[in-house]
């Protein structure tokens, strides 16, 4: 599923890139209609990226609005960047905005661990003990439960795991998008995996 989403994103970028440059140039000169067209072209893709980090629709809407507002004021920076399409640049703005928002909201998580029901706890326990259960559709983890478990993680951990496993982004690409070093991404990823293991082992 993650692969499908990722492929879809790449396809989206390819289809919307053509013509972006003209619109960006017009928007840089103050053409509001051009920026509105940019928004229409990229809205779904940015909502998809944002939805990887937040569950509540209102939150996603708010962050998407913030991404486009930030992009509007940072359009001048885009022209100075070499070798990346506008869609890739906008994705970078979106990822960074999500990261900022996750860090800001780290003390008020969207889900609470106490909301993991007894049935879900039992399900997880069975699933964790059964080594052959990974492929069976009947034992698939629901999105709700997955969200609850991820919400137990620190914002940084959730963020890096979502990029790596959810979006299936390579380490180098994550490093580029966030302006981090490759080793920093690897260290963060390792820490995040250890944290997730700790969360899961509580259900063993």
């Amino acid at each position: 599923m993650g692969e499908a989403v990722n492929k879809l994103c790449v396809a989206d970028i390819a289809s919307v890139s053509a013509g972006d440059e003209e619109l960006v140039q017009a928007a840089q000169k103050g053409d509001d209609a051009a920026f509105e067209m940019i928004f229409e072209r990229h809205r779904l893709r940015i909502a998809r990226i944002t939805s990887r980090f937040f569950n509540r629709p209102e939150k996603i809407e708010e962050v998407v609005q913030e991404v486009f507002a930030k992009a509007y004021f940072a359009l001048g920076d885009y022209s100075r960047e070499r070798g990346s399409s506008f869609a890739a640049w906008l994705s970078k703005v979106a990822i960074n905005s999500c990261y900022d928002e996750l860090r800001r909201a780290r003390r008020r998580p969207e889900n609470n661990f106490s909301s993991v029901t007894q049935d879900e706890t039992l399900f997880l326990n069975t699933r964790l003990r059964d080594e052959n259960a990974a492929d069976a559709e009947a034992t698939a983890i629901s999105r709700d439960l997955a969200s609850k478990l991820l919400a137990r993680l620190d914002a940084d951990d959730r963020f890096i795991l979502t990029l790596l496993d959810g979006e299936e982004m390579p380490v180098a690409e994550i490093a580029r998008a966030l302006g981090w070093g490759v080793s920093r991404v690897k260290v963060r990823a390792h820490r995040a995996r250890v944290a997730l293991r700790r969360v899961l082992s509580e259900f063993l």
Partner: peptide, 16 residues
């Protein structure tokens, strides 16, 4: 080795 694949599945399943 048992927890990591499940962790990856959880991250993927959390998507809308």
């Amino acid at each position: 080795e048992r927890l990591d694949p499940l962790g990856r599945e959880i991250t993927r399943r959390a998507a809308m």
